[in-house]
């Protein structure tokens, strides 16, 4: 069971909001890059976020480039899951590949700062402040398996190939 606060963002948060191209020189220095996570969407986020918190957003989260640094720095900032209305395809795969859970549900009922509880196994999201319960739509089995192993690299090490 995961528990933390919600940091609420709007629709269409792009990979340029999460890790802008101007910080390309930091891409091989992830701890430094992580200090700028989501800077162009909320300059105070990196200082305020604490381990276990959630990024909650609207539709088409993570659109844009294929940069995997985007989910990586979100994970490094301590975020335990991303809860969004919909997600861009590449971001979705990247997040699961590096072991950052993505839950898909109608996030309108979640407010910034709400205390959230997530049960990943059944995909249930509880907003303890607003007293609502949401359910994430199911991800493909292969992604569940990859997430279960902690990411694609541990999955491939174990299976030496894809099991479908």
């Amino acid at each position: 069971m995961l528990r933390g606060r919600a940091f609420k963002f709007g629709d269409n948060i792009s990979t340029d909001h999460i890790v802008p191209g101007k910080l390309l020189h930091l891409r091989s220095n992830l701890p430094e890059l992580a200090k700028h996570v989501l800077e162009d969407a909320d300059p105070t986020f990196a200082q305020r976020v604490r381990k276990g918190d959630f990024v909650v957003a609207g539709k088409n989260f993570g659109l844009g480039s294929s940069r995997e640094h985007a989910p990586l720095v979100i994970k490094m900032a301590g975020v335990s899951a991303v809860i969004v209305k919909s997600v861009a395809r590449i971001f979705y795969r990247n997040a699961i590949n590096i072991g950052l859970p993505v839950l898909l549900c109608d996030t309108d009922g979640i407010d910034d700062g709400d205390e959230i509880e997530v049960d990943l196994k059944v995909g249930r999201i509880k907003d303890l402040a607003n007293k609502i319960e949401l359910h994430s739509s199911k991800m493909p089995q292969i992604m569940l398996d990859i997430l279960h192993e902690g990411g694609l690299i541990p999955y491939m090490k174990k299976h030496r190939g894809f099991d479908i």
């Binding site: 590949n97 590096i98 292969i142 491939m156």
Partner: peptide, 20 residues
């Protein structure tokens, strides 16, 4: 199609990937 670094690392090594 575009993918992230880890998917491509696996593609480098195995010459295949999963796709929906």
């Amino acid at each position: 199609t575009g993918m992230g670094s880890t998917d491509i690392a696996v593609a480098f090594a195995f010459g295949k990937t999963w796709l929906r």
